[in-house]
Computed example of a mutant assay.
Amino acid sequence: MRTIKFLYVILLCTSSLVAQDNFYFPESNAEWLEKPSKDFKINADKLLEALEFAKNNEYSGSRDLRIAILQGFEREPFHEILGPTKKRGGPAGMILKNGYLIAKWGDTKRVDMTFSVTKSFLSTVAGLALDKGLIANTNDKVGQYVWDGTFGGDHNGKITWEHLLQQNSDWSGELWGGKDWADRPPMEGGLDDWKFRALNEPGTVMEYNDVRVNVLAYALTHVWRKPLPWVLKENIMDKIGASTTWRWHGYGHAWTEIDGLQMKSVTGGGHSGAGLFINTEDMARFGLLFLNKGKWKSEQLISESWIKKAIAPSKPNVNYGYMWWLNKKGDRHWEGLSENIYYAAGFGGNFIVIDRENGLVVVTRWLEPGKIGEMMTLVNASLP
């Protein structure tokens, strides 16, 4: 009897794994194949509640994102728009189950800024560099690869690729006119205190800071010796059948010379304009790639070992990996939902949520940022 029970459990587990890995992948320039949610025993009425919630809780900031950015970061000294911006559309999103489209709302083909969701794309470019041997180890000091002084000195010389990816480097300096100390200053204390503060040992304190993210983009541009949008296009976006409409911008003056050629160094967000401009469907394709552990159809585009690194909690912040947010029990935990959920998040309520256990990708745009946990709870309530 015990043997029969044991075999039954194995069969159940094997069946579950086959169901999870039997994904549909949309072709290039083709309409996404839809399936009714009931085919997956998902409650259609409850799923509709999640959609209505997303549509009824639009981000409260201006649809003119130039205004929204300036208002959102008005506390920062010297803050200004340095790269392109674009007026946004209304709430939009898609929910995939095993790759199939089971729900969508809004204009999913409209190209909009996606702000810090860009960071998860930047992280992926770093992963490609590791997979291809351009970076030997994320624990290597960045100064071994970029020796122009950006990572010189007693403090910056200690910084590794992992420190930059986990946003705990405390890199000190100025890039493209942005001073690290002026970026997202703390609410308490004076700015002079922040400017002259003691630096934290790299790897010990997480500080969300776009200047330092842009330093990572700069360093990766020098490692790849080509513009990062080319790298992303050739290695990921073309292969997952993304549209030709997405763009990855840098600041107007962010040029660097490599091998005698002038190259634009892109940003990891839209904090001062620029970053990734992309439609909802291309974001969903990117999410589906990660849902399937870096594999698109039969081709492994980004290694599974990289994804494991990217979604491992950092020591200073259990909710943050390599520029992916993690639903672990910490300050950003969504109570009642799987701790294996991870997601990309950007200003204004842009999200790509990966729920591997349930075979789900949820992309939602222009949702009031504090409402994402509630929305995911509603999605979860619709599941069998």
Rank of each mutant, 00 (worst) to 15 (best):
M283C: 04
L383Q: 07
Y343W: 12
T204I: 00
L288S: 07
L288I: 04
G127V: 12
L165A: 11
P229F: 06
I95G: 10
H155E: 14
I81P: 00
G189K: 03
W306A: 09
A50Y: 12
L291S: 10
D107I: 08
K308P: 01
R75P: 01
T280I: 14
W296M: 07
V361F: 08
H253M: 09
G133E: 14
G270S: 14
G149W: 15
H333Q: 15
K109C: 02
I240W: 01
I135F: 06
L134Y: 10
S169K: 01
P229S: 05
K297M: 11
W366L: 13
V125N: 11
L378F: 12
W194Q: 13
T150E: 10
D210H: 04
S272K: 00
I240D: 08
Y320L: 13
S382W: 00
H271R: 02
D131A: 06
D21P: 03
R212H: 00
V125S: 14
H155C: 13
G143M: 01
G190I: 05
I311T: 12
W230A: 06
A129T: 04
M113E: 09
P36T: 12
K5G: 00
W246Q: 02
S169H: 05
V362W: 08
A312N: 05
W147F: 03
L191F: 13
F53K: 07
S314L: 14
K38Q: 08
I102R: 09
K195W: 01
M1R: 02
A92L: 06
G99S: 08
F78D: 10
M283I: 04
L291A: 01
A254Q: 09
W296G: 01
L122G: 13
P26L: 03
G143T: 03
D170Q: 02
K179P: 07
D183I: 02
A92H: 04
I311M: 02
E188Y: 04
L48W: 04
L276V: 09
P316G: 07
G269C: 13
L360I: 06
G149D: 15
K264N: 13
N350T: 09
D170G: 06
T244P: 05
T14G: 09
G83R: 11
H271Q: 00
T256H: 07
F286T: 10
K179T: 12
P202L: 05
Y208Q: 02
E357Y: 02
Q300Y: 01
P229H: 00
G370N: 08
I10D: 10
W334T: 12
A19S: 02
F78N: 10
G346A: 06
L261H: 14
L96R: 01
N350C: 06
G268T: 09
Y59T: 06
S314Y: 04
G106R: 12
G106W: 08
P316N: 10
T108G: 01
S338H: 07
M283S: 00
N327D: 14
M187S: 11
D154H: 01
F121N: 01
L378I: 08
T14K: 13
M237C: 09
W171F: 03
